[in-house]
Amino acid sequence: MQSKIKGRFRFDWQQNIVFIAFAFVFIFFAITLYKDGFLSVFNIANIFRQTAIISVMAIGMTFVISAGEIDLSVGSITALSALSTALVLDAGLGIIIALIVGLATGMFFGVVNGFFVSQIGIPSFLVTLGMMGTIRGTAMWLTDTKPIPILNDTYNFWFGSGNIGLIPILFFWMILIGLIGYVVYNKTTFGRHTLAVGGNEKAAKYTGVKTSLIKFKVMALSGLMAGLAGMLYAGRMQSGRYTFGEGDELSVIAAVILGGTSLFGGMGTIIGTLVGALLMGVINNGLIIAGLDVSQQMIIRGLIIILAVALGKKK
C-alpha cells in the first residue's frame, strides 16, 4: 500500500525541468538584480512584451516539432508579415485589409514550406533553411531596407503597444493563442494525429493517418503563427522592418524543447512551451539588466539552446 502511494506521488524531475528552471532563474535574478528593478511592475510587464511574440511563434513550432519536423523560416516570415501589414496601413487601406494581408503572408509561406516537405519530400530543415534567406531577402527588396512607419493608433494599441491597466495587450494575445493551441493540441483529432506522425510515422500511416496532410498542415500553421507574430511586432514597434525576427527561430525552438517537446517528435506540451518562452524571456531580460554585452548574451543563449537539445534527446 505504501509503495503504491509513493508511486502515485512520485515527482518526475525530468518531466517538470522547465518549471524548476524557471523558478530557479526567476528567484536568482530577483535576488541578484533586486536593486536594479528586476521585480518592478514596469520590468515584469516588459518581460511579457518580449515573451509574447516568441510564445505565439512557439505555439506553431510545437506542432511542427511534435510531428518530427522543423521550421527555420519563422523569423523571416515574421519580418515580411510585419512589412506587408505596415505597407497596407501606410497605403490607407484600413486595419481589416492589413490583418488579412499580414496573416495571408504568413500562411502563404507556411503552405509553400508544407508543399515541399509533404509533397516533394524535401527535409523540412533544408526547405525552411532555404526559405529563411529567400523571405528575408524579399523583405529587404520590397522596401529597399527602409522601415515603414505605422501611424494608425488603433492598430498599434490592439496589436502590440497598448496596455489594459498595467497589463500589456501582448499578454492577452499570448494567453489567447496559448488557450487555442492547448485545445487543438490536446483535444482534437489533428493534435492526436500530429503526435502520432512524430512518434512513429509508418505506424500512423498504417492506422489510416494521412501523414503527408498532417505535415502540410503543421507547416502551414507555423507560417500562420509567424504571420500573426509579425503583426504583433509591427504593432509593438509601430513600424515594419526587415530586421524583425532575426535569430528568433533559435529562441522559439529552444523554448519549445525546454518546454518538454521532444526534438524527435511524438511528445509535447503547449503549457510547457509557454513556460519555456517565459524562461527565455526572463533570461534575456536578466542578462540585459545585469549589463552583459551582446556577445556575452549570445554565448549564454547559445549554451541554453545546446542544453535544450540535450534535454530533448534525453527524453
Rank of each mutant, 00 (worst) to 15 (best):
Leu250Phe: 15
Lys215Asp: 00
Asp36Tyr: 13
Gly281Phe: 05
Ile53Pro: 02
Ile95Thr: 12
Gly312Ile: 06
Thr145Met: 10
Val184Trp: 08
Val64Arg: 05
Ile65Met: 01
Glu246Met: 11
Thr145Asp: 10
Met57Ser: 15
Thr189Ile: 09
Leu287Phe: 05
Val275Gly: 08
Gly110Cys: 00
Thr62Lys: 12
Ile70Cys: 02
Ile283Arg: 10
Val127Asn: 04
Val111Arg: 05
Asp90Trp: 09
Glu201Lys: 14
Val183Gly: 05
Thr273Cys: 06
Gly92Gln: 07
Asn186Ile: 01
Phe115Asp: 07
Lys314Cys: 04
Thr243Trp: 12
Thr194Met: 00
Ala98Asp: 01
Leu263Glu: 09
Gly291Cys: 05
Phe109Gly: 10
Ala204Trp: 00
Thr154Asp: 11
Ile283Ser: 08
Ala45Lys: 03
Phe24Cys: 11
Leu228Ala: 03
Thr78Phe: 11
Tyr233Trp: 12
Leu232Val: 03
Gly266Arg: 04
Ile305Gln: 11
Val41Gln: 15
Leu93Asp: 09
Gln50Lys: 15
Ala91Asn: 14
Ala255Trp: 13
Ser212Pro: 06
Ala86Thr: 02
Ile257Ser: 03
Gly268Ser: 02
Gln238Ala: 09
Ser239Arg: 13
Thr78Tyr: 13
Asp36Phe: 08
Glu246Gly: 10
Glu201Asp: 02
Gly268Asn: 04
Val183Gln: 09
Gly198Leu: 00
Lys4Asp: 11
Thr189Ser: 09
Gly121Ser: 01
Asp144Val: 05
Gly240Gln: 02
Ile177Met: 10
Ile135Ala: 01
Leu258Gln: 11
Ala52Gly: 05
Val252Ala: 01
Ile65Val: 15
Gly102Tyr: 07
Lys35Thr: 14
Ile150Leu: 03
Ala91Pro: 15
Val25Asn: 12
Leu72Gln: 04
Leu87Cys: 07
Val309Met: 13
Ile288Glu: 10
Thr261Gly: 03
Tyr182Lys: 12
Ala255Ile: 07
Ile271Thr: 13
Phe11Val: 12
Asn152Ile: 05
Pro149Thr: 02
Ser3Tyr: 13
Phe125Cys: 04
Phe244Thr: 06
Ser66Ile: 03
Thr78Arg: 13
Asn284Pro: 08
Ser222Phe: 00
Leu126Val: 15
Asn285Ala: 01
Gly312Arg: 07
Gly260Ile: 06
Gly191Gln: 00
Gly114Glu: 01
Phe28Val: 07
Lys4Arg: 14
Ile59Leu: 06
Gly181Leu: 00
Phe11Gln: 07
Trp173Cys: 02
Val25Cys: 15
Ala79Cys: 10
Pro147Gly: 05
Pro168Val: 02
Ser81Leu: 04
Met219Gly: 00
Asp90Lys: 15
Ala255Ser: 15
Ser222His: 00
Leu126Trp: 12
Val112Gln: 11
Lys210Ile: 04
Asn46Trp: 04
Met225Phe: 14
Gly102Trp: 07
Gly181Ala: 01
Thr134Val: 14
Ala45Gln: 10
Gly165Ser: 01
Ile120Ala: 10
Ile20Arg: 07
Phe190Gln: 01
Ile65Thr: 07
Val74Cys: 04
Met57Asn: 10
Leu170Cys: 06
Arg8Val: 10
Asn200Phe: 00
Ser55Arg: 09
Ile283Trp: 12
Val25Glu: 08
Gln15Arg: 15
Met298Cys: 03
Gly60Cys: 02
Trp141Arg: 13
Thr273Ser: 06
Ala229Thr: 02
Ala52Asn: 09
